[in-house]
Design a binder for these strands. Structure first.
Lengths: 270, 270
DNA sequence: TCTTGACTCTCCCCCTGCTGGAGGCCCCAC
DNA sequence: GTGGGGCCTCCAGCAGGGGGAGAGTCAAGA
């Protein structure tokens, strides 16, 4: 007979655990001194303890171990229960893998945003824009209203989105509260939704400027780009565009000083 | 402003959970009525709630979420912490895979024991035994001592085990308490351990008998096989062997009436 | 025989991230 | 003013133990 401390060394189970297994009734001491309450174990109980430890190592809950130990007598009966436990663990693995996949997706998105921030220059450039299919909503309102449109639009056409959010401005001037705005996304194919309208947005020659900073400070960017048009003797075509390369992040508002917005002014062809 | 019930619908988080997040200080209501204690939330808090739900979905503990939400303002800072979380999850996956591997191993063992029970005939046979590498411990004691040796041996050479547990008897007679016994396993390569000795066990011609039943009833088996040797004019070589095809199971003692033991008596070559 | 120090006992709280329930207010509509 | 549903706080419980207090026990040495 061993005291609980000795038995703990034999079985490599903590004393607390042995007492807990006693309370749970899955591993009873072989003798309990009635006066002192001391637990004593026979060496033969070590086998049962080892079986319990083995089953716990396979993530079997105590309650299930109790049933197994009381109702089963042969290994052959264990096969089914082992395999069903295996499946439970397998499905837990599946859940974890899903989590990791979504972490990967978010990390990729964050990184691509960062890379874009490095990639672009802040000088005025001339570009040839490609034709694209554009799904957007046209409304009259404030410039700050576009954010909300992106949220709802992204939910309804999510999987067809083929580029960064954009807005088109159909006024040739700055307007306070009733600007004529079209906000949406480039899409990979024409989609039909109740809210959005799909159309082909023609490309062509354009002058562009990358702006880093909060949206309220876009003004000087427009000043600079319009000055450029003037010196080159080019004239602006409508609608003008803004492409939001980096805005509020997936998790947080982010730092508006790092927002990255591309102003695109189409040039009238002669 | 929404009541907690409305906000619960918006965020798809149970009311109880919202109250818990309030207690934990990671999602405070935007206003609390001082008289009634009612919590009220602004719609803008839904974004924070979504972030919390997302992080919880990635298994981040509440305490970590609290730190993240209070100290981080940009997505870029999240990359490291997301990747470290990814690693934690990956290692949990690893642990689960290990568990499943050991379940597989045990299921295989149980099944092979079952199959052996069907496969073997119970008559006396003559066989040619192959040479094998044998890792065992030689000691003097009782026949019933071999069980303990298998347990400790299996733990130390576990992955190299290449066959059923065996014992070799170096006495030419039955001995009560000081039999000269060697107990161990066939192994796939020579292994070096403090307890066990490895050697090549030479094969050769042998007479064998499969015995079903408890170890105490092996006696008649020996009687039968020795009588067979005599009638054939063969003489016994040492050590004799017992191969334990099926004994006490991984989990349970099993039914001793189903134990399956093969007696192998090597035959002296002229 | 006494003392000392190591063990052991029971009992209670703590961990995580909620969930359920009891008992009691509060709000709104009819 | 009344009913019914919503909301409040507080308490308990889950799984599998871990940590620690305060008290009793055991065995060896002086």
């Amino acid at each position: 007979m061993f005291t609980i401390g000795e038995f703990s060394i034999i079985t490599r189970l903590p004393v607390k655990t042995l007492r807990y297994y006693h309370d749970e009734g899955i591993l009873m001491p072989d003798y309990i001194d009635e006066d002192s309450g001391y637990r004593y174990y026979r060496e033969s109980s070590a086998r049962r303890a080892a079986v319990i430890a083995l089953l716990r190592g396979m993530n079997f809950p105590i309650a299930e171990i109790r049933v197994i130990l009381s109702e089963f007598t042969e290994d052959a009966q264990m096969v089914d229960i082992l395999l069903s436990q295996r499946e439970k663990i397998e499905s837990a693995i599946g859940r974890f893998k899903t989590i990791n996949a979504s972490i990967d997706a978010i990390v990729r998105e964050i990184r691509s945003n960062e890379m874009n921030a490095e990639k672009y220059s802040y000088n005025i450039e001339e570009k040839i824009l490609e034709d694209m299919i554009f799904a957007g909503k046209r409304f009259k309102g404030k410039y700050s209203d576009v954010g909300g449109v992106f949220g709802t639009a992204a939910r309804s056409i999510g999987k067809w989105i083929a580029g960064k959010p954009m807005s088109l401005y159909h006024d040739g001037e700055y307007r306070e509260g009733d600007a004529d705005i079209e906000a949406g996304f480039p899409v990979s194919k024409t989609v039909r939704t109740p809210d959005l309208e799909c159309r082909i947005l023609p490309g062509g020659r354009a002058v562009t400027l990358m702006h880093r900073g909060p949206y309220e400070k876009l003004g000087p960017g427009y000043t600079k780009i319009l000055a450029h048009l003037e010196t080159k003797g080019l004239s602006m075509d409508l609608p003008t565009r803004e492409v939001y390369h980096k805005g509020p992040g997936v998790f947080f508002r982010g730092n508006p000083n790092n927002y990255l917005t591309e102003i695109q002014i189409p040039v009238k062809q002669d």
